[in-house]
Design a protein around this nucleic acid. Structure first.
Length: 569
RNA sequence: CGGGACGUAGCGCAGUUUGGUAGCGCACCUCGCUUGGGACGAGGGGGUCGCAGGUUCGAAUCCUGUCGUCCCGACCA
């Protein structure tokens, strides 16, 4: 490809509405343009990178036994009604009606579609395992699309679905995908971590997120400084923190006027905040009250609370009426003296506390010397708190650290959630009808591209990992009006092409500085400069974008040397 | 959905307070000159000032509504 034929409109200035560096650089480097909120056009350079990432994914999916298919984006509501998600999915799903009034959605994911496809086709265990995938635009009407490709409303996703005859098979498929994902992100040149994750609304038992480490990421992960435990913040398991032993004192009611935060209470009663127990009141979508108690200085993990509230789909802050209905008092809620049958969840750390302070369910009063083991009745004890830096690893006890990242992929086991609901069955060895045991596995292609830029850039622009660069080599003619330079560059260009290298010839009649700036901005890993210097001295001048290293190569072996240098990028 | 900010040429911005008929830099087109890190000179094209009402002799500017965009939060496979 020649730059004179390439549509790559670079911008000298950063568009004002781009916040994160990947978004800014993709716009400036002429890789994409916004069409509307959360929707983007890919220009030739950007699309080349997208296709390279897709190809890497394709190769690894195929190597793991996957087969590529293509399903419609438009999905009939009936499938979603079978799975029960038509009602549950909410405003995030783009829904449309056809001229006859039939309802459809623009696929936010394809569990229903693929389950329907496979149930009509696969009858025997002999046809399993079956791993089908596609590359396709997905639609999610995000409340707040942002950060360019990191969170958009239409985005390209590789989604693979596994069908097995039993759990063991599913776990094998899961392992295959886990390994394939590791290969994909490694080949893309990314620094990432697979972390244990919550399955969320999609259901199932196990899940890992593949998190590309980046400060601009929206995900928070916790990882052990000693062993290899790593988990998303909402998933991270925590062991109860033992309390300091103390003589158990009798329960006492104390007047604590105008103290609605735990800090107020602790300073008023002159006890450390670690001696207090705070309440967070939620209610489910059906209006059922859920009270969660954690230590005063801890944060409640809503995902963990939701898991304890059986059958609930979502939580919101409880209304004052809901709280008073069970004998609670806003600002002074405590587990003691609530109406029988109230769902009271207590964090495991709280349960071990000694002589603590908690609300007395009466305005202006708290209990002192609360000893949960002695004083709490009918409570559910669970791990409810949110991880924070320095917490002990649940496996080896070493301190954990927190870091930010971009969730580029996620793998889930689904079990029979969809196959059972949609009656997708096969006959096993004994002729018995069984639901498929499924898994699903997604990679955000555009998000992977954005993550790569977040991780690889400097003040001059993008520094592409070679595997996903729009072109891996650029040959720059310093003065394209100089025939000698141009023909020398063309020769180098065609020699490189013969080796199968992915090369761009920058033959634009611009000043050298303009071309150099563009090359740095776009981020080609390797640049070959053809100018008077190189011509006179008879050398091939090569510059590495990432390190700035310059090589002066001899005419007789330059091609081999370029290939060597490329190999290490 | 709550809070905040902003919509003026492809991009970045000034002009709005105090109403008088739109400007700067970059980019673009032509010519000249220049060619190893975003040159220079001359000439030129491009904007119903987001949209719709209203006030006024007159609105980018004041008023009302509306749409869009961005940030923070909530939310999120």
């Amino acid at each position: 490809m020649r730059a004179t034929n390439l549509y790559a409109p670079t911008l000298r200035e950063t568009p004002a509405d781009a916040e994160v560096v990947s978004h800014q650089l993709m716009l400036r480097a002429g890789m994409m343009r916004k069409s509307a909120n959360g929707m983007y056009n890919f220009l030739p350079l950007g699309w080349r990178t997208i296709r390279k990432i897709e190809q890497i994914i394709r190769e690894e999916m195929d190597a793991a036994g996957g087969q590529e298919v293509s399903m419609p984006i438009l999905q009939p509501a009936e499938y979603w009604e079978e799975s029960g998600r038509w009602a549950v999915y909410g405003a995030e799903m783009m829904r449309i009606k056809d001229r006859h009034g039939h309802e459809y959605c623009l696929g936010p994911t394809h569990e229903e579609m693929i389950t329907a496809l496979v149930r009509d086709e696969v009858r025997s265990y002999k046809q399993l395992p079956l791993l089908l995938y596609q590359m396709q635009d997905k639609f999610r009407d995000e409340r707040r699309p942002r950060f360019g490709l990191m969170r958009s409303r239409e985005f390209i996703m590789k989604d693979l679905y596994s069908f097995d005859k039993d759990e063991e098979g599913m776990n094998q498929s899961y392992k295959k995908m886990y390994d394939a994902y590791t290969k994909v992100f490694t080949r893309c040149g990314l620094t990432f971590r697979p972390v244990e994750a919550d399955n969320g609304a999609i259901g199932g038992a196990h899940s890992h997120e593949f998190t590309v480490l980046a400060e601009s990421g929206e995900s928070l992960i916790a990882y052990c400084t000693k062993c290899d435990y790593a988990a998303s913040d909402e998933k991270a398991e925590l062991l109860p923190i033992p309390s300091v032993e103390d003589e158990i004192k009798p329960l006492e009611k104390a007047e604590t006027p105008n103290t609605t935060t735990m800090e107020d209470v602790a300073s008023f009663l002159q006890v450390p905040i670690e001696k207090t127990i705070k309440a967070v009141a939620y209610e489910t979508e059906q209006g059922q009250l859920v009270l969660a108690f954690v230590r005063g200085d801890h944060e409640v993990n809503e995902v963990k609370v939701l898991h304890q509230a059986e059958g609930a789909l979502e939580l919101r802050m409880a209304s004052e009426e809901t709280i008073s209905a069970v004998g609670g008092c806003v600002g002074y809620i405590g587990p003691i003296g609530l109406k029988e049958g109230t769902l009271v969840l207590v964090d495991a750390t709280v349960m071990g506390m000694v002589n603590a302070v908690t609300g007395a369910n009466e305005a202006g009063y708290h209990f002192k010397n609360v000893n949960p083991r002695r004083d709490f009745r009918n409570v559910i004890v669970a791990d409810l708190r949110m991880v924070r830096e320095g917490d002990a690893c649940p496996y080896c006890g070493a301190p954990m650290k927190m870091t930010r990242g971009i969730e580029a992929g996620q793998v889930f086991t689904l079990g029979t959630k969809y196959s059972a609901a949609m009656h997708a069955t096969f006959l096993d060895e004994s002729g018995k009808e069984k639901p498929f045991v499924m898994g699903c596995y997604g990679i955000g292609v555009g998000r992977t591209m954005a993550a790569a830029i977040e991780q690889n850039n400097d003040a001059d622009g993008i520094i592409w990992p070679r595997a996903i660069a729009p072109f891996e080599v650029v040959v720059v003619v310093v003065n394209a009006k100089n025939e000698k330079q141009l023909s020398c560059a063309e020769e180098i260009y065609s020699e490189l092409r013969k080796t199968g290298a992915d090369v761009l010839l920058d033959d634009r009649k611009e000043r050298a500085g303009v071309k150099f700036k563009d090359c740095d901005l776009i981020g080609y890993p390797l640049r070959i400069t053809v100018g008077p210097k190189a011509l006179e001295e008879g050398i091939i001048e090569v510059k590495v974008r990432r390190t700035g290293e310059v090589f002066s190569l001899e005419k007789d072996n330059w091609l081999t040397r370029v290939q060597e240098i490329l190999k290490n990028l």
